[in-house]
Design a protein around this nucleic acid. Sequence first.
DNA 1: AAGTGGTCTAGACCACAAA
DNA 2: TTGTGGTCTAGACCACTTG
Lengths: 231, 231
Amino acid sequence: MTETGTQTGWQAVRDEALRRIRARDWPPGARIPDEADLAAELGCARATVNRALRALAEDGLLERRRKGGTRVPLTPVRRATFSIPIIRQDIEARGLTAGYRLLADAVETVPEAVRATLGPNAPARMRHVIALHLADGAPFCLEDRWLNPAHAPEAVRFDTLSANEWLVGNVTFAEGRLSFGAVTADADLAARLCCAPGAALLALDRRTRAEAPITAVRLIYAPGYRLETVL
Amino acid sequence: MTETGTQTGWQAVRDEALRRIRARDWPPGARIPDEADLAAELGCARATVNRALRALAEDGLLERRRKGGTRVPLTPVRRATFSIPIIRQDIEARGLTAGYRLLADAVETVPEAVRATLGPNAPARMRHVIALHLADGAPFCLEDRWLNPAHAPEAVRFDTLSANEWLVGNVTFAEGRLSFGAVTADADLAARLCCAPGAALLALDRRTRAEAPITAVRLIYAPGYRLETVL
DNA sequence: AAGTGGTCTAGACCACAAA
DNA sequence: TTGTGGTCTAGACCACTTG
C-alpha cells in the first residue's frame, strides 16, 4: 500500500489525497470535500475519486459515511495485512530446502481447553496430528493439529504430505480465526525444535470451521522467526 | 471478508464466485471464464464482475493477470488483516482503565543493533523513551522507543502523554515496517511488567521514517496478550 | 498479434444517516 | 428531508503478457 511513485488515474488521486492528509491540508478530524467537488477540482470522474478514497478508507486513513461525508480520523487505526503462507512455501521462499516429519497421528479425546475454542458441533474425539517442518534439515515449525474425522478419512496418511498441504487442496474452506501469541518452550517443545528450554517462541493459532469444526492448528515457530509487513 | 449472507450487486457476484471455488466448479489451478462471459452469464455489467473478482483477488482467493486470465491458485496464500491499535484505545476497548508511567527519557547514542534497522540518514544520537502502559493499574505493555530529535522537540515531555499518542497527532506519517516476534523476559523486563523472569512475551517492532528515521519502537506485551483476526 | 484484465467516463439511481 | 457515499451501466481505450 502507500505507494510513493507518481501514478496516473485513481492512484494519482489517492496519492494526492494522501499528500494532503500528511501535509495537514486535511487535518485530523476534518471533513474533506465531497466526491463531486474533488472530481471537479482534479478533473476526473466521480467514480475515480471514489475508487481512490475507498482505497484509503480500507487502509484506515479515512473514514467514510453516507451523508456524513469523509473525514480524517482523529486516531487512525492502521490496518496491516500479513500473508499467511503455506509452510512449505514460506521455507522455500527463504531459499531453504523444506523437509517434513510426522511425529504422531491418532484419534484422541479432545482436551477441554482445545474443545472450548472450537465452537458449536465439536466432536468429542478428533484426529490429533503432530508434525515437524524442517528448513535445510533444521526444525522450523512444529504443527500441532486437531482434525475433524469427518473431513479427514483415515485412509489419508500424513507421512509424507503435511496436513497443512492436504487440507489446502482437499477441503472446502469456510471461515476461520487467526491469532498470535508467545509461548515458552517446555522440555518437550525444546527437544522437538532443538532449542533451549525456556526459549520464547511465536505461536500462531488457527481455527477453521463450516457447520462444524474442520481443524484447529497451532504452529510454533523455531526461535528467531518473525512475521513482517510493510505499512 | 468472506460474507455468507445473500447480497445484491457485486457482492452477489463475489459470493457466487466464492461458491464455485469452494464447490470446485472452479477447481484449484483452473482458469475461470473471462469477465465479459461472466457478465453475460450473470446478467450484469463487466465492471460489476471486475469489482467482485478484484475483491477475491485481494483476499488471495484468485490470481488475475492480463491476457493470462483469472485462475484459482493451486496454493492460496491467504491474507489476514490486523488492526494496529493505539495502545490506549486497545486497553479501553477491553473495558479497562488505561494508565501510563514514564520510566526514562534521555538522548543517548543509538546502539548499533538498533541503528542497523533504521535505514539511511539515522542520527548517531536519538531520544530514548521508555514507558509503561497500564490496564486497571497492572502492566499491559512496555514501550521502548527511539525518537529522532528532529521530530521531537525537547520541550515536548512525555510525562503524562505517551510518545505513542503524541506522534499520532503531531508527526506527519510517512511509511513504516512492522514485525512480530517472541522475546524472553529478562530480569529487567520481568520487573517492569510484573511477570515471571523467563516468561514468553509477544513483541511488536515498528519502524517509521520519511527522508530520515522518525521513530523505532518495540512494544512488549504482558503475558497472555494475543493479536487476533478473522479470516 | 491478439486476448484479457485495468481503468476511465458520464449519467443514473439507491441507501443511509444526519440535519 | 436532503446530502453524501455506494453502486450499476454501457461503452471505450489502454497495458500487459502470452502465444
